[in-house]
Each structure stands twice: as C-alpha cells, then as structure tokens.
Design a protein around this nucleic acid. Structure first.
Lengths: 348, 348
DNA sequence: TTTTAGCACTCGCTTAACGAGAGTGCTAAC
DNA sequence: GTTAGCACTCTCGTTAAGCGAGTGCTAAAA
C-alpha cells in the first residue's frame, strides 16, 4: 500500500501539501513550477501529478482544477516527508512552565494548558483530566461543617481534589469522626481507585457498622461520592480556543461550521473523541482514519501525558485535515510534557 | 418618551412583534390583516404602521419592505403588552428541582442549571458563581498530605469549596497543624470574606509567628490562596448551550456569528456582560440598552439568585433582540429560584 | 373625518447568461 | 523523457431580467 515514491514525486507531493496548507485551495502545475525550483516544466509536473493522483496521494475537486492532498497524501507527508525534530518550538515555549508555576490546582493547570496549546497552534485544543483508574487515593478526610453536615475531601496522587458536602439526620461526635477518619485512612489511602470497587466498599461498610454505631445513610452517601467522583466516564474533557475553528476556511461553510460547533458543545462527544485515541506517545489521525463519523473530515494530533511514568491523560488539537502538522506536532509534544510536569509538581 | 398608544396601535404593535418573533423577517400589512383579526383593511394598517414608525416603535429595513420592531418597540412590548404571569412553565419545570436533588457540588449545580436553562429557552445561558464578597467562611482546614505538602480547604456558606496543595521546605508536626487549625478556625471562620483583607491577615500572621515557630512561607502561600480564591474578579461565569445561537437566523451571517462566538469564548467578556446587569430581581436589556458595544444587537434577560436572602449571583440568557420574551422571562424566573434553592440545600 | 380600493413605484432576491481565469489532458515535436 | 502548444472544462464573479412582496399616495366611499 505504501509505495516507495521516487525523489521527484516526493518533492512534488511535499510542495503541493505545503502550498495547500498555506493557501487552502487546489494547487496547479504552473503555481508549483513558479514557486518551487523543481527545474522541470509545468507539463512534466502535470504528468507527475496525474501519477500521484492514480496512486491515491492527490485528489482533484473537479476536472480543470488543481490538485489537493488526499488523506493518504497527508499520511505519507506526516510519516515520510517531515522530520519530527525539525521545528524548534522549545525555545519559545521554555518559559511557559515557569509562567504557570504558581497554578497549583490541577483543573486550572489543565484548562490553562488547553488555552496555551490552542493559542500556540491556532487550532482547538482538547485535554482530558487524569484518568482515575490509575490514580491512587492519597488522602481521605471527613470534616464537620455544622451539626448535621460533613465535608468529605478526597485527594488523589494525580492531584485531583474532590469534595462533597454530606447531609445527615443525626449529628456525629468529634470522637466518632476522628475514628472514622483513621479507619478510612487506613483502609482507603494509597489504594488504586480501581481497587475500591463495590465489593470492597461493602465489606468496609459491614466492618465499620459493627464497630461504630452509625446511620447507614452516611456510608451510602460517602461511597456514592467515591464511586461517582472517580468513575471512568466521569473524566472531564477541557476545551481551549473553540473560536479558532472560525479562522479555518474549510469552516466558512455555515452548515459545516454548525455541525462542528454542535459537536464541540457536547461533552459526551469530546470524551468519545479523546477516548478513540490509543495510548501512544503521539498519535495522529487524519480524516477518514478517525472512527467517529462526525470528524472524518478533521485531523487529530494527540499526545499522552504522564504523571510519575503513568499514562494518565491526553492532550491534543483538532482541526481540518489541512493542518500545519510539523508545527502542531512539536507543539503538542512540548506542551504535553509541560502539562505532565506541572501536574506532577503541583500534586507533590 | 413613552407615549400612550391607542388600543388599535397596541394591538398592531403586539401582532407585528409576535409575528416577527416567529418569522424573523419584516412583517407587511397584508400578512397582518390575514393572520390577525384586526377587522380593518391592509391600507388602514399601513397608516398605523407608518405612525408607529414615526413614533419609533418600528423600523423599516428598506422602502418597500415590511416593518420590524425597534428596540423601543420591544421595550414597550415587554413593559406594557405582555402579562408576566401569562406563561405557566412551572408545571413542566416543577420536577427539575427533584431531578437535580442529588447534585451536591455547587459547581455542578451551576453548570447543570446553565444547561437546563438553555435547553428550555433555546438560547445561550449565562450563570455566575456566588459572589465571594457577601459569603462567609464556614470552614478552614489544613491537612497533611505528605511530609512537606499540605492541603488547605476553604468552605463558604454559599457552598463554594476551594482547595489548594501547598508545598513547604520544612515539615510540620501534627501538633503544630492542629494548633494552626484551631487558630485559623478561631480567627477566620464565620467572617465575611470581604473582612479578610490584607491588614487583617497581616495582623494574624504576626500573632501566629509570635506563638508558633513557622516558616513565613506557609502563611504567605495560605493567604495568597485566600486572596486569590475569593477575589471579586475570580468569580467564574458558566455558559450553557452555546450552539443554540446557531439556530437563530440573525446569526446566519458568518461575520456576525464569528463575532458572537469569539465573544462568548472570552471569559473576561462574559464577566463584563453579567456584571453590567444591576441587582434587580429580573432585568431585561434590549439591544442598544446594553452598555457593551459588542452586544448592542442582543438582548439579555437576567435574574438574580439568592442564598438565604442574599443576592449572590446572576443567571440569565443572551440572544437576539428578537427573543421570545414571555417564555424566556418565565423560564429565567423559575430557574433562578430553583438554582438558589438547590445551592442552599447543598450547602445547608 | 376615517377607512378603503386602486395603482404606480421601489427594492431585494433569484435565476440565467456570459466572460474571464485557471488548470487540465493530449498530441506532436524536441 | 521532456516540453510547447492548444482545445477543452469548470468555477467564479458580474450583469441583467423578472418576480414578488410591500409601500405610499390619491381619490372615492362610509
């Protein structure tokens, strides 16, 4: 399927894609001959272009228009024609990490990085929260707010803090609360959240009720929260720079624009999108390569970010297939690193 | 300025507005005569329409088009021509409160209500978090996470919970932490957040350092958080149903749509919008009545919501001046009540 | 005095026609 | 294998014509 192209074909394919990325319109043989020193006449280029079209790398919107790259063309470009390290964004970006140093709340860091990534790339950015399944519970604490309301605080080692106010019929003595805290700390802390399943929690409930005279109510609410707060599907997805899609000429069509914006408005959809990406360090999905019907005319560039060597979340951008891949790839790469670092530092 | 209109003029104005709200296009005399039983000929209606235009209630996009309502026309409609209680949405909405009963996190309640309001009205909804200045600090608690990191939890009586992980050079003994907690509880809890100014905090710092051997670091970080978390401008604004503006024909113009979406993409702007609304129970701003240049072609319907009788936040919708005012007004009214109730219960 | 019928006129919108421009594919010569 | 030349195709922007909805005015009717 992936034929080896001769040097001139490569050169021409690359030139067409680069030109198309800039102009967003079909590229003709004359333009190409003028702007790139290919040392052959337009007629020759035309022949080569016809070949590239036969091979599936180019498409013709209609007879007598120039050519545009196909998904396969972009794929070849990304895999073979660009050097990944080419772009040196690191210099510009180096100080971002310092800039965001004092954001110590994970949510703020994530939404900050979503904005940052979209600003750098000028595409819409997507970031998922750290996955809960691979997180450990670092701290469980119950505090009394008023006589019959408690605050439950849960902290994971990925820095996610979750809190809920629980209301009770009865009030609890300070002694009971303190017992409860040490009991829960003992049983829950440093456990993987995936270990805290219904079975385990039920057994805890029994054990606890045997020792302490408590309303069933409390524990039920408590583990509702635990389950709810950290359920796999509950992982939020943050968006940055939605309005950048407005700058893309491919969305000048009102219908397409509407479709896209509606899509980004549904959180369910964002979750699906980001979950459709495998756990590679950096994955690129071009057009039809996407499983989801609605984004088959888009490209995704998504990296996995790490907290203490665990792959916990994803960060990337979504845009038209005509995307500035080299710049975007470097940016996503760098920002994903920074994101991991910032969260690691913040969550100590 | 607000002339009294005779009965027929009122009737005609109302008919034009109602018709325009449905059709989104200029209304002519013939249409009006056909659809509404006004018992006069189109010619008569034309004369009346010309009068209404002279008085400023109607506008003509161009000669030989029908009339559309002016801002003044809508204002008259809202003030004089609709009965506020007319719409009975309460029935449909009654069970929303039950539905959301178990959402006990204030942020979730707010974003849930933003979505709900936008779904009911089919306009974009805006909701601001409870203002911090009028909130009391209900609970301050510092917990040890690891040797040199602490978790600070702040809870207000409006149910807002704020947490931050603080890193220190030294580690603190359990005794010190417990002392710190009772000290801070004593000095900070049940105070209005507006009272906790720099002066007060500085005096606390002195007092504390005198009694306890602490790194200056800790307290500095602590009150950075306190200041930061609850600063007036920090109040977030939640959006719901951005994509509903796509359904409005007035935004079928790509340029206008872009402008609007960019606007809603900037949180700063949303804050300005919602802060431009006075503290009335229900305020309606029609087109030019808005101070902000960018939304002079939009209408806002915004209600204040209350927690234990304090006006703490705002909830409303933004849409084209051609808005279904009666339905929107009732909806905003009802939902603002529900929002207040839900938060009160959750933070109770 | 108010209402109405009649009518000429205006304006926006849609459709069709047309020409310019860009680009192609093919053929034949280099 | 490469290139010049050329007829052909297709899009896009502009112009013109026709339609439809609606108006304002006048003069007659109520």
């Amino acid at each position: 399927m992936v034929e080896e192209l001769d040097k001139r074909k490569k050169r021409i394919l690359q030139a067409i894609i680069q030109e198309h990325i800039i102009s967003a319109s079909p590229i003709g043989s004359r333009t190409l001959a003028k702007k790139y020193s290919l040392d052959v006449s337009p007629a020759t280029i035309r022949n080569e272009m016809a070949d590239l079209e036969d091979l599936g790398y180019l498409e013709q919107p209609h007879t007598s228009a120039g050519r545009i790259p196909s998904d396969k063309g972009y794929r070849y470009y990304v895999d073979e024609l660009i050097r990944r390290e080419e772009q040196d964004v690191s210099g510009i970006i180096k100080n971002i990490e310092d800039l965001y140093q004092d954001l110590q709340n994970v949510q703020d860091i994530i939404s900050g990085m979503a904005k940052m990534l979209s600003n750098i790339t000028h595409y819409t950015a997507l970031v998922s929260e750290p996955k809960t399944q691979v997180s450990r519970l670092k701290k469980v604490e119950i505090m009394q707010l008023e006589n019959n309301s408690l605050l439950v605080v849960l902290v994971t080692d990925t820095g996610m803090v979750n809190n809920k106010i629980i209301k009770l019929q009865q009030s609890l003595s300070a002694r009971k609360i303190s017992y409860l805290n040490s009991f829960l700390s003992d049983k829950l802390e440093n456990k993987l959240l995936s270990e805290l399943d219904l079975n385990y929690l039920n057994s805890l409930e029994k054990e606890l009720l045997a020792k302490l005279d408590l309303s069933v109510d409390l524990f039920k609410q408590f583990y509702n929260e635990l389950e709810g707060a950290f359920e796999p599907d509950g992982v939020k997805v943050y968006l940055g720079g939605t309005s950048y899609i407005l700058e893309q000429p491919e969305f000048n069509d009102l219908e397409r624009l509407k479709k896209m914006l509606k899509l980004l408005d549904q959180e369910e959809m964002l979750k699906k999108i980001i979950n459709s990406i495998s756990n590679q360090d950096l994955e690129i999905k071009i057009g039809q390569e996407n499983e989801l019907e609605d984004i088959k005319n888009c490209s995704l560039v998504v990296a996995t970010y790490y907290i203490s060597n665990r792959a916990v979340g994803k960060i990337g951008v979504i845009g038209p297939t005509r995307m500035e891949y080299p710049r975007v790839i470097s940016s996503v790469d760098v920002i994903s690193d920074i994101l991991g670092n910032l969260i690691s530092k913040a969550s100590g």
